[in-house]
C-alpha cells in the first residue's frame, strides 16, 4: 500500500458555490427544455390559440371602440388556465423522474453538486423555459391585438402575463414534487395529467355541485376556491384587470367588500404558498431518497 501521495495529485479544491451550481444546472435544464418537443409544442399551441383568441375577440368588438373587460382578456384567462398548468405540471413531473430513470440522476449527484442545488436548479431552469414560452405566446397575442387596434389595455395584458408566470411557478412546484415522489417518469407524468384534470375541472365542478346541493355560504365557497391555485389565478387576474371582483357574483362581491385592497396580498400569498410549500416538501423528500 502506497502511503505517500504523489505531489500535485491532491489539491485543496473548493467546490463551486451554491449560486454557481444553481446557475449551471438551471442553464442546462433550460437549454434541454427549449430544445425539447414538449416545449416547442406547448409554445406553439399557446401562441396559436392565443392568436385565435385575440383575432376572434378583436373582430367581435364590432369596431365600437368601447373599452372594458372584453372577450380578449376573458379568452386569454381561459387559455392560460388550460395550458399553463398542464405545461408546468408535466414539465415538472418529468424533470427528476426521467433523470432517475435514465440513470442520469446518480451520475449528476456523483459530481460536486448538492441535491438542493440540483433540484432548485432544475426548477429555475424549467421556470425560465416556461417564462420564455409565455413570452412568445403573449407576444404573438399582443402583436395581433396591436395590428387589429383592439382596445385592450397594455396594463391588463402585463398583469395577465405576470400572473400567468405566477401560476406557472406554482404548478411547476407541484409537478416537481410529483416527480420526486414517483418511481417512474411515466407515473409522474400520468399523475400530473390527472392532477391537471382535477384542478381544471373536477374541483370546480365538485364545488359547483356542492354550492347547489349543500347551500354553501359565500365565504365558504370563497375559502374553498382559494385552495385551488387556478381559481386564485383567475380571481387575481380579474381583480387586477378590472379592479373589482363583483363580476364573479355574490362570492366575488363578498371578497371585494370584505378584503378590498388586501386581495392582492391574499392572492399573492396563496400562489406563493403553492410555489414554496410543494417545492420545500420535494426538497425534503429528494434529499432523503436514493437517486437510483
Amino acid at each position: 500500500m502506497n502511503a505517500t501521495i504523489a505531489a500535485g495529485a491532491v489539491r485543496t479544491a473548493t467546490p463551486p458555490s451554491f449560486g454557481s451550481n444553481l446557475a449551471t444546472v438551471a442553464q442546462r435544464e433550460l437549454r434541454e427544455a427549449v430544445r425539447s418537443r414538449w416545449f416547442v409544442l406547448y409554445t406553439l399551441a399557446f401562441a396559436v390559440l392565443g392568436l385565435g383568441v385575440s383575432y376572434v375577440s378583436a373582430a367581435g368588438s364590432g369596431g365600437s371602440g368601447l373599452a372594458g373587460f372584453g372577450r380578449t382578456t376573458a379568452g386569454l384567462i381561459n387559455l392560460v388556465l388550460l395550458i399553463v398548468p398542464l405545461m408546468a405540471l408535466t414539465a415538472g413531473a418529468a424533470s427528476i423522474a426521467s433523470d432517475r430513470e435514465r440513470g442520469m440522476l446518480a451520475y449528476l449527484l456523483a459530481q460536486p453538486v448538492s441535491r438542493i442545488e440540483l433540484l432548485l436548479g432544475k426548477y429555475l431552469g424549467l421556470a425560465a423555459a416556461l417564462f420564455a414560452s409565455l413570452c412568445v405566446g403573449f407576444g404573438v397575442c399582443a402583436a395581433v391585438l396591436s395590428f387589429k387596434g383592439e382596445g385592450t389595455r397594455v396594463a391588463s395584458l402585463v398583469w395577465l402575463i405576470g400572473l400567468s408566470m405566477g401560476l406557472a411557478l406554482s404548478t411547476l412546484s407541484v409537478g416537481v414534487l410529483l416527480s420526486v415522489l414517483a418511481r417512474k417518469a411515466s407515473a409522474a407524468v400520468g399523475a400530473a395529467v390527472f392532477l391537471w384534470l382535477t384542478l381544471v375541472f373536477v374541483t370546480d365542478l365538485g364545488l359547483m355541485a356542492g354550492t347547489v346541493a349543500m347551500r354553501l355560504r359565500v365565504e365558504q365557497l370563497l375559502a374553498l376556491s382559494l385552495v385551488n391555485p387556478l381559481q386564485v389565478f383567475k380571481m387575481w387576474s380579474l381583480h387586477a384587470v378590472d379592479a373589482n371582483l363583483d363580476v364573479l357574483g355574490p362570492a366575488g362581491l363578498y371578497a371585494s367588500e370584505e378584503f378590498g385592497g388586501r386581495l392582492h396580498a391574499i392572492f399573492g400569498l396563496c400562489l406563493a404558498l403553492w410555489s414554496v410549500v410543494p417545492l420545500a416538501v420535494a426538497a425534503a423528500v429528494f434529499s432523503r431518497r436514493s437517486p437510483v
Partner: peptide, 11 residues
C-alpha cells in the same frame, strides 16, 4: 460536495 470534489466517477 467537498468529498466529491476529490472524486472522479465512472459509472
Amino acid at each position: 460536495k467537498h468529498a466529491r470534489m476529490l472524486i472522479g466517477y465512472v459509472p
